[in-house]
Design a protein around this nucleic acid. Structure first.
Lengths: 235, 235
DNA sequence: TTGTTTCTTAACGGTCTTTTAACGGCGAAA
DNA sequence: TTTCGCCGTTAAAAGACCGTTAAGAAACAA
């Protein structure tokens, strides 16, 4: 039943790290903390969080390196939280792929607002032609990105974390085939091999929950040898 | 064709508006300026810009109203540029749908970096309005490279991996003859001998699927002794 | 702790794809 | 005409791929 968005917070100062953790947890996020760059990279690749809070000044590694490293395989939103107020740093971080840059000291309300904004972006509302809404619809299937819930015929369908991530990813790119490799990387991180058995099991479970006839799917199709593709949202 | 991203800058103070305009123009953006809320709304709805720079303190209208109004029909990125540094304002603006909040005074480099970030977000996903680039058409045959799908008379045609690879290769070099040897090497690798029986079998299957009269093909022609050639895309 | 949910791995059977083999038509050349 | 090379077509064997179930491991909540 744990459908909270997940955040990895990276910061070497204990006091600040605690604040970040408390603030986020009290707003209903699942938080994992890391105090060094190497620890951060491990956590990010194993948890595949929904968002990363990153301090640039780490003891063992340049914060920019972390941004680069993560961006090489994922587009998880990254909010830089730094004491450094130099414009050069901001520009570098943003251009390397960070999504926002917050200078210490910051208010907790602003932090949370920026977190919400970043998560909103990640849930794929980047389409300027459509009205502003975080909802995907196709046939009798509805996905509410804000609530992280999926509905079939208006009825709430319970999906586990991984199942939801898969469905959300596919729906964000509906109509296109997402390769097994891509899906594996996005959900299980870059260190998982090319063995896609887990994905198959998850897909069977997903289909049992959202398809009327799992053997003859109407929402998620298989492109043999390539990947999966979700039916396109109707205009 | 003007391929510059378009920006609408909204600001009532002339000096700052000029700065915004100059900075953005010098970075290659097409800029339109507005000095009031009503003017801004008109411009935005008529130009449909790629990004909006918005000052909250306008003479005739609350800046928050503008965010709301725009968000009711579009998710064009909005960067708020404001002198107000109150946290309450930032939270309200972001939660109403603004994408970033920049406090005056700001450095031009940071402004531009945040503009780039916002544009990156917008163009990243879901924003393929009608990019006709990834599509090949000839007669009643359509190949959508992005979706990895082939259509005959608008109807989806299922091709296997190798079949799709062959069709995609031929279509990307339509009009030219691709030799058996070349096709074999591209699809089965360099270690496959010069025995092109496999290719013939695949071509028979492809033609049965995409040609109206497989015996008298209209899309993929045989150049005896040389290879295959796909009909050329019409202008 | 206990019990429950979720995640991962293993195994199996069925289906689709790929490859191989065989046959026949067509046209060119002897 | 006959022969030969080239190609298309079909069928069947071999193989790869995928869905499904079940059971063990791990994470989680009470």
């Amino acid at each position: 039943m744990n459908n909270k968005p997940t955040i990895v917070a990276v910061e070497d100062e204990n006091s600040i790290l605690n604040i970040l953790e408390m603030v986020c947890k009290s707003s209903g996020y699942q938080v994992y903390t890391a105090k060094s760059g190497s620890e951060a990279l491990m956590m990010i690749s194993s948890y595949c969080p929904d968002l990363i809070l990153l301090d640039l000044g780490l003891p063992d590694m340049d914060g920019f390196k972390i941004i680069q490293s993560v961006r090489s395989w994922s587009s998880i939103p990254i909010i830089v939280v730094s004491a450094r107020n130099h414009e050069k740093d901001k520009v570098s971080a943003l251009d390397l792929g960070a999504d926002d840059y917050l200078t210490k000291p910051f208010g907790t309300a602003e932090l949370l607002a920026r977190v919400r904004t970043a998560l909103r972006h990640a849930s794929g509302d980047g389409n300027k032609t459509k009205a502003y809404e975080g909802i995907f619809r196709v046939g009798d299937l509805t996905i509410d990105y804000d609530k992280r819930q999926v509905f079939k015929n208006g009825q709430n369908v319970h999906l586990t974390q991984n199942e939801y991530k898969i469905v959300a990813l596919l729906s964000k790119h509906s109509g296109k085939v997402l390769t097994y490799d891509f899906l594996m990387k996005q959900i299980w991180g870059p260190n998982m091999g090319s063995d896609n058995r887990i994905l198959r099991v998850n897909m069977a479970n997903i289909r049992r929950k959202i398809e009327t006839q799992p053997a003859d799917p109407a929402y998620i199709f298989t492109e043999i040898g390539v990947g999966y593709r979700m039916a396109e949202e109707k205009g």
